[in-house]
Design a protein around this nucleic acid. Structure first.
Lengths: 254, 254
DNA sequence: ACGAGCGTTCGACCACGCTGAACGATTATC
DNA sequence: GATAATCGTTCAGCGTGGTCGAACGCTCGT
């Protein structure tokens, strides 16, 4: 599925390796970058100074860093998605009303990416952040998305990424997952019952566009001790479905 | 100030030009990208397919797009700043309390960059977004930052970017700006009185780290009709200074 | 059927990206 | 305070590979 380039450009690949080095390590030196990217020090130096000249990296007193240019590019990518701008205010509202952590995510190259995460109660700092990726089979948003992708596409995603075990409850059998997805289609919402992390429970709904294609999903998550009983089986699903309807209505008139 | 690379890498430069083409135009074709970046179609194709293979761009049905990989990189750059994680919850709180649009920005290569923007009242969609850049001389956050940079650095920034007129009230004379900056230092807050855009008024405060270096600024902005009288001269400045103090205290214990 | 646009592949040339060695500057170690 | 290690940077030179233009199917609109 990873579309192979017929004629990959080697210097681009080292450039990208350098970006990854800058992302992974905090403020690395030229030599660090060179080692991490597997190139000579002089090559790393040339790439870094080119990137600096164009404002993509800055070298502070501690070392090189990705510049805020990437924030601009990231926002551009985020705004390009159909769902983000429309769903965001609804996510904020939902989060205020429920006090839970609300997520918007989309599928990107077979994985889930959080476009936005918001928590009504800001006192707890977000441990996780936007842009983070996760497998689709073990989260509420992921399963909501999978449930509405063409079966062929689902298979190809599972072939590519497998069903890695993230916690005790993670679904690791294809068959189990498929019947779960059928159930999700039927009742209109998904549940992550500590499948991604212990003690974390999450309810999600898909978001479809005018052509009935999934463009993402919305979910609310919280401690398993809080997301229980009526709240888990009725209250949150109903609430989320309402929000989903509002978002889909807003999508119609752009 | 733009540190010249002694030996710039040409293929990196075309790669960056391609990224800019993807950012500027929505879902451009290979030919569009080639024209915009000033290279042959086949060269553009090779770069794009390399980027796609590594997951940095995706080609949807409409054309090529930046992938959400850039959201990840952008978040990484944002988190690297000293101010972001600490100030963000305070910004949210301030926004809820005032109902105004609250901004966190930092200086990056002589310009201001919004790290975060939040508005208590989410019903109005944010017209502007994080990552956006602006000149420092015509915004409340920008002037608060300039007021605490070494004079030499301020001069070099003004040399580089000038004082472009953004609206009726924009300060375009260096002398005027310098006395304004002195005033800001004295009273501890800055005001943008429709200097960036007509009808928009804004109050800002600098945020300093343990070494008394500016690491960014915080501001609250709203319609000129709302931000007036006591609110403009006393209420908001006092409120912002309180928030600033809280942020600086939090910075101490990381 | 036609032509105009697209994205892609190919061959060939010579620019230029890569390496390794050498440079001063800075810090660490004794 | 001398030595040594390591830093970022520059340089020359080799030979790879990035570049372009032409040519290829292909999908459009006419």
């Amino acid at each position: 599925m990873t579309e192979k380039a017929t004629r990959p450009i080697r210097s681009d690949e080292t450039l990208l390796a350098i970006l990854e080095a800058l992302e992974a390590r905090t403020a690395p030196s030229v030599s660090d970058v060179a080692t991490h990217a597997g190139v000579s020090k002089s090559t790393a130096h040339n790439h870094l100074s080119t990137l600096r000249e164009h404002g993509y990296v800055v070298d502070g007193e501690r070392g090189y860093e990705l510049s805020l240019r990437f924030l601009e590019l990231g926002e551009s990518a985020r705004t390009n998605t159909e769902i983000y701008e429309v769903a965001r205010p609804h996510a904020d509202e939902l989060s205020r009303e429920t006090g839970l952590l609300v997520n918007i995510s989309v599928e990107d190259r077979g994985k889930g990416v959080y476009l936005y995460r918001t928590r009504g109660d800001d006192r707890i700092r977000l441990s996780t952040r936007a842009g983070e990726v996760h497998e689709l089979h073990c989260t509420a948003t992921g399963k909501a998305i999978l449930a509405h992708l063409p079966k062929r596409r689902v298979e190809s995603i599972l072939d590519q990424h497998g069903l890695p075990k993230r916690s005790e409850n993670t679904i690791t059998e294809r068959e189990t997952l498929h019947s779960e997805l059928a159930e999700i289609r039927e009742r209109g919402y998904s549940v992550d019952d500590e499948e991604y992390g212990q003690g974390l429970r999450c309810v999600g709904v898909p978001v479809l566009n005018g052509d009935d294609a999934v463009i993402g999903a919305l979910s609310a998550s919280g401690p398993a001790t809080e997301v229980v009983g009526e709240r888990l089986t009725t209250e949150l699903p109903t609430h989320l479905k309402q929000v989903r309807n509002r978002i889909e209505l807003n999508l119609r008139d752009y």
